[in-house]
Amino acid sequence: MSRQFEGRTVFITGAGGGIGRAAALAFAQEGAKVAATDYNGEWAEETARLITEAGGEAYGARLDVTDRAAVDAAVDAVVERWGRLDCAFNNAGVTREDTRSPWGDPEAYAATFAVNCDGVMYCIAAEARHMAKAKRGAIVNTSSIAGMSGSGGAAYCGSKHAVIGFTQSAALRFASDNVRVNAVCPGAITTPMTDAVNQDPRAAAFVAQMHPLGRMGEAREVADAVLFLCSDKASFITGHPLAVDGGFLAR
């Protein structure tokens, strides 16, 4: 381990499982202090427990990212506790559509955009407020291959395109403050969200063959990309949507 984040702090949403938990554990392994938040507070606390049992420093807390005041308070709590905010991974996201959903379903649209768009915007604003003052920081947002193509339902696809727009707008706005803002765009990743696919061999084989590498990705593979974008090795990268997709978008 290089311990490249020794002495630094990171704030993560959607840290209760999947990609968010993988990123929290990876940051901790590299020396970061981790604030793990999730809509399910028990899951967030479990992530923090895994970190502390491994010798790291972390705490878990429930957070509804659609509540702007709660987001502001959660980000402020990191700075109050550790005196700084170096990195943030805005990973909380939902999908409310499936193959049976009508295109443009208003209820799915509203529920999806509330988390995937409003939540990301609130988080960026709260994080950048502290980072700009300190003249340092790195933010990564979770988009999707659906944000770089037409894949998925209207609400999910539209919301993930919006995340890339937020990312690029914030990257330009805060560049002069030495705050970098990027996004990761995962393909199909083995997480609790894709359990239903993995439990059906035919569905799993179909999803796997969509990726030229011939398989679904692992949560840790996306986490590695997040750590890279937050690291000093990515010091000249901002406003970039990084596909972690097994070649899906190259087809």
Score class of each variant (00 low, 15 high):
L227D: 10
V65N: 09
N198G: 14
G217M: 06
F206L: 12
A77T: 08
T9G: 10
R180A: 09
S235H: 14
A154M: 10
D200C: 09
V226R: 03
N182H: 10
P241S: 14
R100S: 15
G247H: 08
Y39D: 00
T238M: 12
D232C: 00
K160N: 09
C230L: 08
E30A: 12
T66L: 06
P102V: 14
R251Q: 15
K135G: 02
V179A: 03
V78I: 11
S176T: 13
Y109R: 12
G56H: 04
I189R: 04
W103V: 14
G147W: 06
F89H: 09
M148V: 10
V197G: 05
K135D: 12
G93F: 06
Y59P: 04
G239F: 13
C117Y: 05
G158W: 08
R129N: 08
T112W: 01
V115C: 01
E218P: 00
G55Y: 09
G55M: 09
S231G: 03
G104H: 06
R136E: 13
L249I: 03
A28V: 00
R21Q: 15
R62F: 05
R220P: 00
A204G: 07
H211N: 10
D177P: 06
D72G: 05
A126M: 09
G239W: 13
L63P: 10
M216V: 12
Q209F: 03
V140L: 02
A219H: 02
G104N: 07
R180T: 07
E127V: 08
A170C: 09
A175Y: 04
R251V: 06
E30Q: 15
P201I: 10
R68D: 13
A175H: 03
N90L: 15
V78Q: 06
K160Y: 10
H211I: 12
A88C: 11
A132W: 07
A171I: 12
W43G: 13
A54E: 08
A170G: 08
V163N: 01
G16Q: 00
G147L: 08
Q168F: 14
N90G: 10
A92N: 03
V120G: 12
R81V: 06
M216Y: 05
A203D: 14
A32F: 01
V75M: 00
G14P: 04
V34E: 01
A155Y: 03
V222A: 06
A69E: 15
D72K: 11
F228G: 07
I12H: 02
Q209T: 11
D232I: 00
S144R: 01
G41F: 02
R81I: 05
L25D: 03
L227S: 11
A171H: 11
D177Y: 11
E45L: 02
K233R: 14
G7L: 07
A126R: 08
H130S: 12
P186H: 05
S2Q: 14
C157L: 03
L172G: 14
Q199T: 01
R100W: 11
N116R: 01
D177H: 15
A22Q: 05
T112S: 02
A196N: 09
